[in-house]
């Protein structure tokens, strides 16, 4: 019986300053394959369909269960996690490209440090007095927990930035993921005490005003985070904050 095979096309680039090129690999089909297994198969035998022997493809991956956020790439045109992209569910040939909204490092590896910088810029944390024992945290209703928990599952994969028309070189838009984190921390009883700092950060260039409601973000979020709700909610928060400080000044 002939072996079942399929084709994977990968957009590769040796270095940021070198030209990109597409390369085709033919892989043996096995049950339950995902895009990660494809890339591993290629690493084990990095020979293209036309017989050229190349270097293995560089890519980021870690947990392989869609909770670390590392393996985001564009697969058949959609930004998504490679680990949960099952070969049997994908149109063939499978096309794999790096994310385009972040500086390219090599092949499928991009540098997403912008997102971590923006988490810093928006003070996305609960400022605690210290890690010594200060007793229990504030009480929280189950309803608040149920609203906050989905937001806290953001894996910083960058899919929502990749798909957003407003995230590009001309804007500095932080993207839905970061805005949603601001909402999370402003929701927390302690975090709420410092909401103004985060809202200030989102008022300026690259802030919430850059969102123009294309609502693509929510379509590509692997964790089904209600990003468009976060955007609207934070829009309202920043607006109220701006008006309040306009009339009353800062506290």
């Amino acid at each position: 019986m002939a072996e079942k095979t399929f084709i994977v096309r990968i957009k590769r680039q040796q270095r940021p300053d070198e030209p990109a090129r597409w390369e085709e690999f033919e892989l043996r089909h096995r049950p339950h394959m995902n895009v990660i297994t494809c890339l591993r198969d290629i690493a084990e035998r990095p020979t293209t369909r036309d017989g050229r022997e190349l270097t293995p493809v560089s890519y980021e991956a870690n947990c392989l269960e869609e909770v670390c956020g590392a393996c985001a790439m564009i697969i058949n045109g959609q930004p998504r996690q490679a680990c949960s992209a099952l070969v049997d569910n994908l149109e063939k040939p499978i096309r794999i490209e790096p994310l385009t909204k972040f500086p390219l490092v090599r092949d499928l590896v991009v540098d997403r440090s912008k997102m971590f910088q923006d988490l810093k810029r928006t003070k996305a944390w609960i400022p605690i007095d210290g890690s010594y024992d200060l007793g229990p945290g504030p009480r929280m209703s189950p309803a608040t927990q149920e609203a906050g928990y989905p937001l806290s599952r953001c894996i910083t994969c960058g899919n929502c930035l990749e798909i957003c028309p407003k995230v590009n070189e001309d804007t500095q838009f932080v993207g839905a993921a970061i805005v949603s984190q601001v909402r999370l921390f402003n929701m927390h009883p302690t975090g709420a005490m410092h909401a103004a700092e985060r809202l200030d950060a989102l008022m300026g260039p690259g802030g919430i005003a850059d969102c123009d409601n294309a609502q693509n973000c929510v379509k590509v979020c692997p964790k089904n985070i209600p990003l468009t709700e976060s955007l609207a909610d934070v829009n309202g928060q920043v607006l109220r904050h701006a008006i309040k400080t306009w009339f009353h000044g800062r506290d």
């Binding site: 409601n213 468009t228 709700e229 955007l231 909610d233 934070v234 928060q237 109220r240």
Partner: peptide, 11 residues
């Protein structure tokens, strides 16, 4: 407007 002014928050 409803979204950008935070008037309509829930899906």
């Amino acid at each position: 407007f409803a979204c950008k002014w935070g008037l309509a928050v829930t899906a």
